[in-house]
Design a protein around this nucleic acid. Structure first.
Lengths: 201, 201
DNA sequence: ATCCGGCGGTGACACCTGTCATGGTGGAGT
DNA sequence: ACTCCACCATGACAGGTGTCACCGCCGGAT
């Protein structure tokens, strides 16, 4: 029996995935959690073989959880399942040590299959997404440029961002300018949108 | 047997919900679709009792589908199940004729129950969300203000928006100013964010 | 008949933004 | 040591943005 943990903040989706997987004879739901920071303890307590993690979660995001899990419980393999097929997500998930990456609009039958492959030591990656990830390339943004874009995402003014990051307004404008240029956008809002869509934030 | 249709653009989630519901003895999955514009035909063909609709879907959004369904197949009741608990979504869904409204992080056990209640003619609404919906009030935006905010969402300049809507730049600035004022924001980006969070777009 | 509100527009003004030049610091690599 | 680059900052400038006053048109309500 493959012992699986499900981590997804949407209770209904989590329960539905549990129902889907419980129909497989060789898979057993060992644990279900709704927050990223509950995963590691649950994996240890329940002796989990494969952890199925969403990325968008309260507490800790799935990628951070993956990194911690690889370090502290290396026997447990990780499958990241996410709503958004952002190229950067795939890259970061694999870099953090995930064994597989799926988007939520892939066929339902494939989930159990992916879990079996991962459990047997293989890697599972959505092929079309892998191609897109290679084409899109890595994030061109520096850490600070990323910070500024994140702070700009919810629509504050330069002064707000400067206060938020304890920077001078001129510096913020410079970082924004650099980020706009690197994303080939024309406004900060467009830059934030493009960076988000690429999974760079 | 209650004949149910599932409409959700995420294949994996749709399949998982089907698995969840197929465990209920009195519920039968009559159809599954991944696009809004496939719902009405499927409901007619498969003689569906209750349609479970996501809001965010390609083709037609769930609220528009609800309205069409009420008009063309009044015997079929509608349960809207969505990721985002936007107050405006609830209001618009109910106005369009939905019998129920659930967010995807409510407990999984409640879904089958909601379907049964709806099938027996009752209405099902998340209580906490209903309160929030009343508190938030209806959208204060006029149709044009809404259009301009939608066009402004992806970060274009005033000139872009004006071109997109065939308006003068001055007019666009006036609508933006009105929208910013009504949403109590300070920039167009903030206004777009606030309006989106309220489900006004 | 009158009023009201949404729609579309013009023009002006203060202010914010995006860009560029320029400068300094400190860490990483050769 | 030297180069390179990320980081932080200042100042200046053109152009974009948000606000306001004011205009007309139209359709619906009183």
């Amino acid at each position: 029996m493959i012992r699986v943990l499900l981590a997804d903040d949407q209770h209904l989706v989590r329960g539905a995935l549990a129902a889907l997987l419980s129909m497989e004879p060789d898979i057993e739901i060992a644990a279900e959690v709704g927050r990223g920071d509950e995963v590691v303890d649950a994996v240890r307590d329940k002796d989990v073989d494969v952890a199925v993690l969403d990325i968008e979660m309260p507490g800790l995001d799935g990628i951070a959880v993956t990194a911690i899990l690889r370090e502290q419980v290396p026997s447990c393999r990780v499958l990241v399942v996410t709503t958004f097929g952002r190229p950067g997500y795939l890259r970061r998930a694999m870099a953090a040590g995930a064994s597989g990456f799926m988007v939520k609009d892939s066929p339902a039958e494939r989930l159990a299959d992916a879990i079996r492959r991962i459990h047997s030591g293989l890697r599972v990656v959505d092929p079309s997404l892998a191609a897109e990830s290679l084409a899109a390339g890595d994030s061109p943004l520096t850490e600070r440029e990323r910070d500024v874009l994140v702070a700009a995402r919810d629509g504050g003014t330069v002064a707000d961002i400067a206060r938020m990051l304890s920077l001078s307004e001129g510096t913020v404008r410079n970082y924004l300018s650099a980020a706009i240029s690197k994303t080939r956008a024309r406004t900060r809002a467009e830059a934030a949108r493009i960076a988000t869509e690429h999974g760079w934030l």
